[in-house]
Design a protein around this nucleic acid. Structure first.
Lengths: 193, 193
DNA sequence: ACCGTAACACTAACGGTTAGTGTTTCGGAA
DNA sequence: TTCCGAAACACTAACCGTTAGTGTTACGGT
């Protein structure tokens, strides 16, 4: 029951990283769809079952370090300065995330994702999960008292902004444009007719 | 090259319907995940390859008559009365679609969809396609001259309204609530600061 | 020193999907 | 009417992601 801080954990993390590294190497080299799970397992020198004990699916190998996404959004809501308005805080965070994804170094991975139908679909459903998490965070914020529908709507709109801005020709400008619309939607939801 | 209007087409349509009916019967009876493609093919008395020549995937068997969804939305944009404002027209159409899906008769199918992860994910990616179609329809409308980003954003918001209202406790009220927000977003996009 | 457990391996399969290869059946042109 | 080409359909056999079942190590705590 004590917190295990030993070699076992390090070994596990090392195995996980070895698998993820092998996968990314093969995927970028030969293309995602052209590489099989058995190839990845062989390259990482690991059994197929071991691979699946570290990653829930083939797609999850690509979105490995994505855990931070949900946390960044929920914290942008929960940890914002007292009385700081909600939408600008979210706008700032989304802008940072969009810039992170459209950075030069992320281009090959992003290109790979766009090239595979299953990866795109996986990311879509990830985004829905993120939207639900954000809606939950909005419900937990003490200074916001909207209806469930309004919370879920705003959460979806914010996630949409992320997805749309990333694909836009001018991502920064798109964030501005979309968040102006979200701001208006939020205002009208706060002050019902 | 002439329009084929013969027995062949009727036979094809009959086979397609036979497969879809067999599938729905088995799915509702035993549960979607408990029924295999080979079961459906056997029940419809067709080969597995024949089944896949009519339906692209197992999930597509469930969303058979969904082709109308895209058309209804794009037509709501293109065929609306001259000078009729956009958002109310879309609101009306979404409301009708939501009511259609939450009708009593659709309950078993809807319940089945909610019960299967793969069906839910399939529907999500269907909705993205619908949003893209709607964005294209907005681009084709002569009386609307917004940026690409604005069009895609509004399209997503409208599809979100459909998804969210369907899951809400009070679907009709949710459509009202969300479209008030969409209207505000649209207004601010039409009249930039 | 020892026990429980978590990580890992191996085989074998399951279920959706597709390639490859015919075979039938129909619509339209000769 | 006859025949050709195409489309629908069938069948086998496999591919690929994923999982169940069954061990076998290797480590942490007692």
């Amino acid at each position: 029951m004590t917190v295990p801080t030993g070699r076992r954990e390090r070994k596990k993390a090392a195995t996980r990283k070895k698998i993820a590294d092998a996968a990314l190497r093969l995927f970028l080299d030969r293309g995602y769809d052209a590489v099989g799970i058995r190839d990845v397992a062989a390259e990482a020198d690991v059994a197929v079952t071991t691979l699946f004990s570290h990653f829930a699916s083939k797609e999850a190998l690509v979105f490995e370090q994505d855990e931070g996404f949900e946390q960044r959004l929920t914290r942008a809501v929960a940890d914002r300065a007292p009385h700081e308005p909600l939408i600008p805080a979210l706008r700032r965070e989304i802008l940072a995330l969009v810039r992170h994804c459209t950075a030069e170094s992320a281009a090959p991975v992003w290109h790979m994702i766009e090239g595979s139908r299953s990866l795109r679909e996986y990311e879509e459903s990830m985004r829905l999960r993120h939207a639900e998490s954000l809606a939950a965070a909005l419900a937990a914020a003490p200074d916001l008292s909207q209806s469930t529908t309004v919370r879920r709507t705003i959460a979806r709109f914010v996630i949409d902004a992320y997805a749309l801005a990333r694909e836009a020709a001018d991502p920064d400008g798109a964030v501005d444009e979309i968040f102006r619309m979200i701001e208006a939607a939020w205002e009208v939801a706060c002050h019902p007719a």
